[in-house]
Amino acid sequence: MSGPVCECTFFDEGDWVESRLNPDIFGIVVSNSDFGRFVHVQLASTLEMRNFYAVTLQHMDEGDEPPLQAAEPKGADVIDFTKERALRKTTKTEGAA
């Protein structure tokens, strides 16, 4: 980290922020309380909600923001509903359910 990205201490809902102390901790602002003194952030890595003092956060660079796409869970069974599939021993689907 070369220096602060911004000097602002107010964050709107939906802003991507990171910790000034540890840039590996980042997430999206969900809400503010106590007139912006505390910022409620949903962490990107665990989807856990955490509260931060506003002065300990900074906006992320536009290029550093993670893409807004759902990560596929590890070990998940992906089902293609466009293909025929046996629901029971005697029945089969003919495509999309």
Results as ranks from 00 to 15, higher is better:
54 A>I: 01
21 L>K: 15
18 E>Y: 02
80 D>G: 08
78 V>C: 07
10 F>H: 14
37 R>K: 11
32 N>C: 15
25 I>Q: 14
67 P>M: 00
77 D>Q: 13
8 C>Y: 05
75 G>P: 01
61 D>T: 06
29 V>L: 08
5 V>C: 07
20 R>M: 03
60 M>Y: 04
96 A>V: 12
5 V>W: 00
67 P>E: 08
58 Q>S: 05
15 D>M: 05
37 R>D: 00
78 V>E: 06
76 A>M: 11
11 F>H: 11
97 A>E: 09
13 E>S: 11
62 E>K: 13
76 A>F: 07
93 T>E: 08
22 N>H: 07
4 P>F: 04
70 A>C: 13
24 D>P: 01
5 V>T: 11
74 K>D: 13
55 V>P: 01
44 A>I: 02
22 N>D: 15
29 V>W: 13
32 N>A: 15
56 T>H: 10
51 N>G: 01
72 E>I: 11
52 F>V: 06
66 P>K: 04
49 M>V: 14
32 N>P: 02
92 K>T: 15
74 K>G: 05
16 W>V: 05
86 A>W: 12
51 N>V: 15
59 H>D: 03
8 C>I: 13
86 A>F: 12
51 N>I: 14
47 L>T: 04
21 L>N: 12
3 G>M: 04
9 T>P: 04
56 T>Q: 03
55 V>H: 08
95 G>P: 15
20 R>F: 02
75 G>W: 02
23 P>D: 08
42 Q>G: 02
33 S>E: 05
84 E>T: 14
14 G>R: 01
50 R>W: 04
43 L>Q: 11
89 K>R: 10
56 T>C: 01
32 N>V: 12
80 D>W: 14
21 L>I: 11
68 L>M: 07
37 R>L: 07
90 T>V: 05
29 V>M: 06
25 I>K: 12
61 D>L: 08
5 V>L: 03
60 M>N: 02
79 I>C: 06
9 T>C: 09
84 E>F: 05
2 S>R: 03
74 K>Q: 10
71 A>K: 14
47 L>N: 09
27 G>K: 02
91 T>M: 09
86 A>E: 11
36 G>F: 07
94 E>T: 08
24 D>R: 15
